[in-house]
Write a protein that binds this DNA or RNA. Structure first.
Lengths: 335, 335
DNA sequence: CTGTTAGCGCGTTCAC
DNA sequence: GTGAACGCGCTAACAG
């Protein structure tokens, strides 16, 4: 590996002068500057970011901790984050928690020892509290994405889950559905709670009774649980429509229905939160509340970088992004 | 920030002893070991990976350079890479080149200065040659993914593009199609060349004439180019089926057809390479040659880590993964 | 079993 | 304008 000392020697100057040339700092005569530059090129010199970081206490590394890159929502979010990071000269360290608190903790430990400059954190749920606290304790700036964590005061970028859910359910009600099931996430996740509230509100505002037997809970990633629907379908008065609280749950719901020989929307209307990225464009099918995933990442990254570079006030900021109801062909009036 | 010296002082030992305790190296009395451990916990000590890397010349960082995380193929590949990396104690630095050689070069420079231990490299195309060479020159181990680069001798994980393409086209021929268009990637990409060869071979083996006016080229990401299809559709003898060389091109093709009021498969059959991840499960529609994307990442990462840790021979390895023809509803006999 | 010395590659501080 | 000395946090090599 070639260092500033190699350059210095060959250029007949001190290492310090080389360092100054690299960083454009201090006063250097044009002559020596050129000479140093030339040697640097001849030797294919590349600054060692490690050594530099050790001195400057800045790594220009940001950790993106999400639950699953395979979910199109997070895929697009990640892309927004990366673009914003690149623009500001940061690189992205990337990790999937799989909605698993223990795995999340593992990554937080890694993050801490890696000395990243900040963390873009899409938490698994309320119990991420301790992991977030860990970051705070070590003064690592972070921005929380998608899910609000009680007891954590930080910049946060959220979707309007309640409003989005209400829109989705009201769309179903407008079509004439009265028995609408909710396949929700677990209650330790703020978005699941809010989507439930939106579901409730839609019922209340439209004079529909609530029936808890129509509501079931699954982890946002547990879409393979094929038996989950049995309870709903075997009710005396089964639902005519299902609201899946996120896109992965919708995949599971639709596959389960298909296995049982039920048609969407013929036998059952289905809607969900979150769209499906470019793939969704192929055969627009599912009626969804689409969130601006790219903006989640981009905006979150901007807030984070402002924090890191100390350009923001102390007060924590809270951004709420709207979702858009996109009506497609997975919904129709009940038969 | 608290360091081994802080620990050492409070525990009444030297920094070296602390270091030994941390790394479980050398002989330490159980007594002092416990004392040091206790102080480390009290002070919430976290080793500084930066300093450690500067000494050891190992960062435990691997760079994943792909063209676009938004493409479901790379999404799943990334997930496979991450899982394999985590298992071996490496973290992932992640970058999108957007099939753009200049952007790719930017990232290679970043990679070089970051001193990653290795690179998992899905190149933009043949001209990535120079970027790869740059890595070689600096002795950074890498594994090439998905696209073979002429003149670069390295471990590589490929899909069987020719075979997959042949299967797809033969499926169309079996349905009775005789005029089959190919919307291909640009010719500086090995997969595009091979998919063209497979397309050719299918024609030859089935006694069908080739017609170059049925073949057009687009960048794998240029699926927004709505006018691309005009030439094909305005032929005297237009195609009855289209083979899109990857999933993103298929999205563009189908959207273009839709804008023109053409139905798939009613007016035009469509097939493509690469599936659509979990989203594709919702409403299985497109007939595809599905590649084992997760394995691309997982296997590639394994090969890379073997290289990094010096467990592999000098000869470079070449893994070819088969694709699977999945017939769905985007194809039917010509009308 | 434990400590001292030196150095990884670079930038800050001060002196000239 | 330029350089010497020191330190960032840690570990390898050697000493005791």
């Amino acid at each position: 590996m070639i260092t500033i000392y190699d350059i210095a020697e060959k250029a007949g100057v001190s290492a310090m002068t080389v360092s100054r040339v690299i960083n454009n700092t201090g006063r250097i005569s044009e002559e020596t500057r050129k000479r140093v530059r030339k040697v640097m090129e001849e030797l294919h010199y590349i600054p060692n970011a490690l050594a530099r970081s050790l001195v400057s206490q800045k790594t220009h590394l940001i950790s993106l901790l999400i639950t699953d890159i395979t979910n199109p929502f997070y895929t697009t979010l990640a892309r927004g984050a990366e673009d914003a990071a690149k623009k500001a000269g940061y690189r992205l360290l990337f990790a999937n928690s799989d909605e698993d608190y223990a795995k999340e903790k593992d990554y937080v430990d890694m993050i801490l020892s890696t000395r990243v400059d900040g963390v873009l954190f899409a938490p698994a749920g309320d119990h991420s509290h301790d992991n977030l606290l860990q970051l705070q304790k070590h003064q690592i700036p972070f921005v929380v994405l998608d899910r609000e964590i009680p007891g954590i005061d930080a910049d946060v970028v959220l979707g309007d889950s309640k409003e989005g859910a209400r829109n989705l359910v009201e769309h179903l009600i407008a079509l004439g559905h009265q028995r609408i099931a909710l396949v929700n996430g677990t209650q330790d996740v703020s978005t699941a709670r809010l989507r439930y509230l939106g579901y409730n509100e839609a019922h209340r505002l439209n004079g529909l009774a609530l029936d808890d037997s129509l509501v079931i809970h699954r982890g946002y990633r547990d879409f393979h649980d094929d038996s989950a629907l049995d309870g709903l379908l075997q009710l005396d008065d089964p639902p005519t429509a299902i609201f899946a609280a996120n896109n992965m749950l919708a995949v599971g719901v639709i596959q389960s229905l298909r296995h049982r020989g039920l048609q969407v929307p013929g036998d059952m209307s289905v809607v969900c939160f979150d769209d499906f990225g470019p793939a969704g464009a192929i055969n627009p099918f599912l009626t969804v509340a689409a969130q601006p995933a790219y903006q989640f990442g981009q905006l979150g990254m901007q807030l984070l970088i402002e924090r890191i570079e100390g350009e923001s006030s102390d007060a924590s900021r809270r951004v709420m992004l709207p979702s858009e109801l996109i009506v497609r062909s997975s919904t129709q009036p009940p038969s």
